Every structure is written in C-alpha cells, then in structure tokens.
Simulated assay, not measured.
Amino acid sequence: MEIKEIMQNVTDFFKEHVAPPHKITSVEAMEEKEGWKVTIEVIEEKEYMKKYAKDEMIGTYEVLINQDKEVTSFKRLDVRFRSAVDVESRR
C-alpha cells in the first residue's frame, strides 16, 4: 500500500536525521507536484526536557515527498508542550 510506504519512509528519515516520530497526522496527495505532503509530530529535545523535569516538547513538521516516495524537504511549523491543548482537535 502506497500510504504505508510513504509513512515508513518519513518515519525512517526522521529517526535518522531529526528526532523520533511521535505520530503522523496527515498524508495528502499534491496534485500540482506529483508527490505528497505529510504532517508529522516529533518529540523535541527529549533528554534535555527529562533532565530539567519539564514537559516534553512536540514539534510539528511539514514534509514534502516526491513521486519516488523520497523526502525532498521538511520544515518545522510549530513547537508546543506535549500537555498543551491541541487547537485543531477543538474545531
């Protein structure tokens, strides 16, 4: 299944280069560019937060995937405390 492969590729990329994924919240086909846009949440600076007894920080990233299912770019959209209320879920 294509979506599973895309999600696995993004997960592997983030594990290796950014931070361990918390969850993938969306996978969307991009009509104009023949690829996909993925939104992923990762736990930011986990060891630092544990050391200082702070709540974990969750970073939300937008990831672009090409037609070969490879990550071509990513950017962090937001950082929040894990315990913070998610604004999207209240819509």
Rank of each mutant, 00 (worst) to 15 (best):
E2Q: 11
I3D: 03
I3H: 13
K4C: 02
E5D: 06
E5M: 08
I6D: 00
M7T: 00
M7F: 09
M7N: 08
Q8V: 06
N9V: 03
D12R: 06
F13C: 02
K15G: 11
A19H: 03
A19F: 00
A19D: 02
P20D: 06
P21W: 06
K23F: 05
I24M: 12
I24G: 08
I24C: 11
T25P: 07
T25M: 02
S26R: 10
S26V: 07
S26D: 08
V27R: 10
E28V: 01
A29I: 01
A29S: 15
E32H: 08
G35M: 03
W36E: 05
K37E: 13
V38C: 04
T39P: 07
T39E: 12
T39Q: 08
I40W: 09
V42T: 15
I43P: 08
E45R: 01
Y48T: 01
M49E: 11
Y52K: 04
Y52M: 10
A53S: 12
A53L: 11
M57F: 09
I58G: 01
I58W: 08
I58L: 05
G59V: 01
Y61G: 04
E62M: 08
N66G: 04
Q67D: 05
K69R: 05
V71H: 05
T72P: 09
T72S: 14
S73W: 11
F74W: 14
F74L: 13
F74G: 05
K75C: 10
R76D: 03
L77P: 00
D78W: 14
V79Y: 10
R80K: 12
F81N: 12
F81W: 13
A84K: 11
V85W: 12
V85E: 15
D86I: 11
V87K: 12
V87T: 14
V87C: 06
